[in-house]
Nucleic acid binder design. Structure first.
Length: 948
RNA sequence: GCUCAAGUGGCGGAAUUGGUAGACGCGCUGGAUUCAAAAUCCAGUUCUUUCGAGAGUGUGGGUUCGAUUCCCACCUUGAGUACCA
């Protein structure tokens, strides 16, 4: 009987689906284990062999954990809102819901054929109203919350209102907008309800704010920095301008410290934690207030300005020789003297044209302009000229810096360029060539009360003195910015928000979900409003509590709804909770389910989400914990980034100016142009199937009349490893692999390629290795005339092979070293085949070991051994050390550390006897050639090393 | 620039606490089987070599009886990030 993988795989996939083999229960005596993949965006192109890599790894782990007696939750779903579907809708007019549905079907078929043990009964789709109902609900909770910095915790906004009415806001230590004004309880209570709403909005964890964005008028949308190339949109090349827009923001900055601290409690890779730390960007220093000197030409009212700066080096405060403001800084226009006005305005105009990215990329050019105004040094009272320079970013700190040229290279370069003095405040340091930024060896000089102090002491003293003056305090700054949460798109979650007198109002939970309205086109409106501005039925009636036609808007009972939609990361920031109780229509998940499953034990996905999805999810979970909705502080306990599988592109070489294609070895110094060809026309020896290429439906025409110049009778292509992509014709489809070799071969081969975390090239030719292994495995169990397995007693060698395999495979899975397991299986099958093993006592446990990796063949053989329950219910074999105990050791005999020969000696031989046996050996004498050994190292059971 | 990875045969990679470098597989070479092919099986395959042996894990040092593994400096590649005050 042969190994008919197609039949076997279809049979067991059907069995698993029909018997709900992998359905997890929310009640169990077994310990729980939650294995999660980053859910895919269902793109139109379907899966290529790179996509399932992480899913296969997590599936192996999930199946292993089931064998180990865990109740495993291993769900899958779709991140199904997103731009490609919308773009396709704009081009074709097809509703994104339809194309998304189609794409999901393809994905599901492809995933099913690989034999994953997903619990599909818990599938979620972020674009499903029954799912985004809860995304909207969480948004409302964020709106109804504020963050107390003293307690480091979010609370209900009603508690804040109570505080305000009892004691005003002076004593409230909240994460809020910078521009809140102080008020007393009495004042608060006298505010109109509209005014109260305005004030509260400054405290809410999601709030409306004017944000500067990259606006592309032609596309009617906001673009991310990387969607802009050379100042124009990447798609279409339209001009882009900086524009202020009112958008929803998330106050993630409130959680900066906890997001940073939490990293120490989770098992993620160091590189990933490091990216998040960089992103959060904590820096400790001080804020310093400089008074701007009254300018005689300005009125008294305009004259009393203050500039706040943040510095990490308050110890260098006596080294300040100028200040620099970002061109966008609001004080610039107010303090500039009439003489400098024209120059400053010209400079601001020039910098406004450059995108933020351009400005950052061009570090070399030093530019700036003097405002004509001066500030006063808080201690020395010296005059400090105030400059404008675009090396200061408006978005970081206060958008202004105290420039200490002797201690900061950028300040130094700026000072040199504009001939500003560079006072030296460092003891014994030469600053004639460059700034001195070494904190550890700093001794302060020329600095009044700071003289002679080191960095630490001087910092402490400077902050103390600033506080005495009321012109500064110790401060910690974070680079992490609040996240913009509005998108001018159609295919995303609608906000559960309507507007009364321009103030946002939340729709009550009872009326969720607010479903996406129908529009006739998916483009922005002619007036530049988002696509939802095209909907005719998009107003909120507070009497019927329903979405009604726009023409009913009267602003007394019927109000306009929000036109923006939520960003891609909204739905993905909490989906891991929904899997716990996916069909609950009363809550996002029940308390019991949340309590049982807690959080994700193992999360596998790509490292490209390091600072997006993985940071936002942590933020939402911390918020939900604060408000008592969940019991955990972190979403993902352990996280592994799978590496990317790269494609091996193939090239043919056209001789310039001809229609001749030269085989790779013939190029020499002839001028040729390499052209990508589809990898399916290339065999394992890099030989091109010329006929196949010429008959290709898509490109055959291009090569029809081409002449292929062969070497040794074949055309050899060139190869290069590149990212797998359609445009490089190196995409390999798992469907074809499954059909030709089977899902078990695909699973084994993806693992066999190399370590999970590494980037590695795909080469279909190599799959014959693992496929051959499966055939060999099959032959070990099934002969010409039926099963080869019997009840015979295993031999010592059989047991040794089995138990070393158990040991290795178990260690490998625990270490996520799946590639070495595959080798181990090959070795085991090779050995057992040589041993002609037929013993069920050995061959049955081997199947359980293999089943996480190659579940179909394992199920089939297991059932042929007489079982009528799925192999997934079998316990993992127990390792028994006693089978590996050896009585002798083949010692490597080294001379000066180099192994020269081996010698078989009993395991229990003493050190002295080993040395004697080695020294007596004739090859030892040969090696020494008469020399007397200086030293003989004997490590019993390991090695002998002779020095001399 | 900074941070984090990673450099081992023709290729993917193995060597888990410092102890036989190149497991396992691909590819290649030779052979068996076959009318032939596929499939299968067997043997060989780091480099050099005067066939005795010698060298060898990016480069150069160091620690050690012994280093792919530990330390220092450097080079290369990849990823992320950036005038962050």
């Amino acid at each position: 009987m042969q190994y008919h993988f197609n039949e076997i795989e279809a049979k067991w996939q059907k069995y698993w689906a029909e018997n709900k083999t992998f359905q997890a229960t929310n009640q169990s005596d077994k310990p729980k284990y939650y294995v999660l993949d980053m859910f895919p965006y269902p793109s139109g192109a379907g899966l290529h062999v790179g996509h399932p890599l992480g899913y296969i790894a997590s599936d192996i782990y999930a199946r292993y954990k089931r064998h180990k007696g865990f109740n495993v939750l291993h769900p899958q779903g779709y991140d199904s809102f997103g731009l490609p579907a919308e773009q396709y809708a704009i081009q074709t007019g097809q509703h994104p819901a339809l194309t998304t549905e189609e794409n999901i079907k393809t994905y599901r078929r492809q995933l099913d054929q690989i034999g994953f043990s997903f619990d599909w009964s818990r599938e979620v789709r972020t674009s499903d109203p029954s799912y985004y109902k809860w995304t909207q609900w969480i948004f409302i909770q964020l709106f109804e919350s504020w963050y107390c910095k003293t307690h480091q915790c979010a609370f209900s906004i009603s508690e804040l209102e109570k505080l305000f009415s009892e004691e005003g806001n002076a004593g409230v230590n909240a994460a809020c907008d910078d521009d809140v004004e102080y008020f007393t309880a009495k004042e608060w209570n006298s505010f109109s309800s509209d005014k109260k709403l305005v004030v509260l909005l400054k405290y809410r964890l999601t709030y409306l704010a004017e944000t500067e964005v990259n606006w592309c008028p032609a596309l009617g949308t906001v673009l991310a920095n990387d969607e802009i190339v050379n100042g124009v949109s990447e798609r279409g090349g339209h001009p882009v301008v900086r524009k202020k827009m009112t958008q929803w923001s998330m106050r993630i900055s409130a959680y900066a410290e906890r997001l940073l601290q939490g990293l120490d409690t989770i098992d993620w890779t160091d590189s990933l934690k490091e990216s998040q730390r960089n992103w959060i960007g904590k820096s400790v220093g001080a804020s310093v207030t400089f008074n701007v000197l009254p300018n005689v030409t300005l009125s008294a009212d305009e004259g009393s300005h203050k500039i706040d700066v943040f510095t990490t080096r308050p110890d260098t405060i006596f080294g300040v020789s100028f200040m620099t403001l970002a061109p966008e800084h609001e004080l610039v226009s107010q303090i500039t003297t009439p003489e400098q006005k024209a120059e400053v305005e010209a400079y601001i105009q020039a910098t406004a044209k450059r995108s933020e990215r351009d400005r950052m990329a061009d570090v070399k050019t030093i530019s700036g302009v003097f405002t004509g105004a001066y500030a006063e040094h808080p201690f020395s009272k010296r005059l400090i000229p105030i400059w404008v320079g675009d090396y200061v970013l408006a978005g970081y700190g206060t958008g202004a810096v105290m420039s200490v040229p002797c201690g900061d290279q950028r300040d130094y370069d700026f000072a040199k360029h504009f001939n500003i003095p560079i006072p030296n405040i460092f003891e014994g340091i030469d600053i004639s060539e460059e700034a001195y930024a070494d904190k550890d060896n700093t001794i302060i000089a020329n600095s009044d009360f700071l003289n002679g102090m080191n960095y630490k002491k001087a910092t402490k003293r400077a902050i103390f003195e600033l506080e005495q003056l009321g012109q500064g305090e110790g401060k910690t700054n974070y680079r992490l910015r609040d996240a913009v949460f509005s998108r001018q798109r159609y295919w995303g979650e609608p906000f559960p928000v309507y507007y009364v007198n321009g103030m946002p109002q939340m729709i009550d939970k009872a009326h969720l979900p607010i479903r996406l309205p129908e529009v006739e086109k998916y483009l922005p409106t002619e007036t530049g409003e988002p696509p939802l501005g095209r909907a005719d039925v998009w107003a909120w009636c507070t009497e019927t509590n329903s979405v009604v036609a726009n023409n009913k808007i009267n602003n007394t009972t019927v109000f306009p709804l929000e036109l923006n939609t939520m960003p891609g990361w909204a739905g993905s920031s909490w989906y891991f909770f929904r899997y716990m109780d996916a069909h609950n229509d009363q809550e996002f998940a029940s308390e019991d389910a949340l309590k049982y499953w807690e959080n994700v034990d193992l999360y596998i996905g790509g490292s490209e989400h390091a600072t997006g999805h993985l940071l936002y999810s942590r933020f939402w979970v911390k918020f939900m914990k604060d408000r008592g909705f969940v019991g955990v502080e972190e979403p993902f306990k352990k996280l592994i980034n799978q590496g990317m599988i790269l494609g091996t592109s193939a090239f043919v070489y056209r001789e310039d100016g001809t229609n001749k294609y030269l085989s790779k070895g013939l190029i020499a110094d002839i001028n040729v142009h390499p052209i990508h060809v589809k990898v399916q026309y290339v065999n394992a020896s890099d030989e091109l199937d010329i006929e196949g290429l010429k008959n290709d439906g898509e490109f055959g025409e291009d090569f029809k009349d081409a002449e292929f110049i062969l070497e040794d009778g074949v055309y050899k292509v060139g190869r290069d490893v590149e990212k797998m992509s359609k445009s490089k014709y190196n995409v390999v489809n798992p469907d074809a692999i499954c059909e030709q070799y089977g899902a078990d071969s695909l699973r084994l081969y993806e693992m066999f390629l190399g370590p999970l975390e590494q980037y590695k090239p795909w080469n279909t030719a190599g799959i014959t290795g693992v496929h051959g292994f499966l055939k060999k495995l099959w032959k070990l169990y099934v002969g010409e005339n039926g099963l080869n397995v019997d009840d015979s007693e295993p031999t010592k060698d059989n047991l040794k092979t089995l138990h070393k395999t158990i040991k290795k495979v178990e260690e490998d899975i625990e270490n996520f070293s799946f590639n070495t397991s595959v080798s181990t299986f090959m070795i085991a099958v090779n050995e057992l085949t040589t041993q002609k093993c037929t013993s069920k006592q050995v061959l049955e446990p081997l199947l359980v070991l293999l089943s996480p990796y190659a579940p179909h063949i394992a199920e089939e053989l297991y059932s042929q051994l007489g079982h009528n329950k799925s192999i997934s219910t079998a316990p993992f074999p127990k390792f028994d050390e006693s089978h590996l105990v050896e009585s002798s050791k083949n010692y490597p005999i080294s001379f000066n550390g180099k192994m020269r020969f081996t010698l078989e000696l009993p395991m229990d031989m003493s050190k002295e006897d080993i040395e004697a046996a080695v020294m007596a050996h004739e090859k030892t004498k040969e090696q020494l050639q008469g020399r007397e050994p200086k030293k003989v190292i004997v490590v019993p059971g390991k090695i002998v090393n002779i020095v001399g």
